[in-house]
Design a binder for these strands. Structure first.
Lengths: 173, 173
DNA sequence: ACACTACTATTTGGGGCCAAACGATTCACC
DNA sequence: GGTGAATCGTTTGGCCCCAAATAGTAGTGT
């Protein structure tokens, strides 16, 4: 939830009191509210920062870059897996691939054994872009986690992985 | 970054090795990469979960709910602050407010002292919706953090707050 | 009064996003 | 071998998202 938690410490305390007051009758778990809110706020802020400072100079959208990244790490993949891996729906992937193909960074290739399916592979230009953007992207990642100790950064990754898996389990049931 | 980090532990280790191999020449900070990646993956997964299970039954979009929430916590607000508080651009807020007004959940009201500005307030129906949705939303928040101890949940919120503030400072410079 | 500047919400254009509906292909079973 | 169910990628419709351009309003200095 927005800046309900965030910003300076003063505003933070003020927001917490406001929520306590305005939501007093609702019996809320303020601890998990704060944690989950901060996940969203952090993700939005860091993502916007990345899009402006790293992706935009290359005219890449967020999802386009994620798809390129997945293809570079895992090699050529079929459409369905690619969508899952990139965390977007199949319908969304179609548009992203259209854009990527138009820019010559990836290509669709028919699967010979099954004409329903479609493979996707990086072009040389696509490979170059990933290897160019990835270090810049990672430099910013290091920046935003720069005020954490190495141990805290590892803890953050670990705690998030737990939440992530819990949420995934909730959906697969 | 997608499921590069996530899923089961086996896949996680496999992904880490893959990244190490494929990106070996690039000198990446894998610790911050994992932490930031998990922020994005967690945010996406939890958000999709919330939209499907909590918001959709009320025909509410994510941003629409955030705006309603902010209005409920802070009371009537002017457009500009509202956008900042909700973490969206001014242009985006216009569309969200159009939708919210059409559904009778919020209203724009002219600011008498300055005809450029526009105030926004919840309607009674809007208040009812927030007070209905918020507890359901919070129940899911408690669910996804359910595998964390109270102390871990607090730690998660704290570490994210540090990253968030670092990222915000990076942008305001 | 007048221009100049600064600020407001809004519109525009190009994408991204999902769910649901669709058409094509494959598979299973009879 | 033909019929029905399952599984692909794609299309459609509605909303969200941002940046940049726009129009209207307010303040500032002359």
């Amino acid at each position: 939830m927005p800046s309900a938690f965030a910003a300076g410490d003063d505003e933070l305390v003020e927001a917490e009191h406001l929520i306590r007051d305005r939501m007093s009758g609702l019996d809320l778990d303020l601890l998990s509210l704060a944690a989950v809110s901060n996940v969203f706020r952090t993700a939005t802020t860091v993502r916007n920062h990345m899009e402006r400072n790293v992706l935009k100079p290359h005219s890449l959208s967020w999802s386009a870059f994620v798809v390129l990244f997945v293809l570079h790490i895992w090699g050529a993949k079929e459409s369905r897996e690619l969508a899952t891996e990139a965390g977007i729906s199949g319908g969304t992937l179609v548009g992203v691939l259209d854009t990527l193909e138009r820019k010559g960074l990836a290509v669709r290739q028919p699967v010979l054994t099954d004409r329903r399916r479609v493979g996707v592979a990086l072009t040389d230009a696509g490979t170059t872009v990933v290897e160019d953007v990835m270090p810049a992207f990672n430099r910013e990642e290091a920046q935003v986690t720069g005020d954490l100790t190495a141990e805290e950064t590892a803890t953050l990754a670990r705690l998030l992985r737990i939440v992530l898996r819990t949420a995934e389990d909730l959906d697969n049931r």
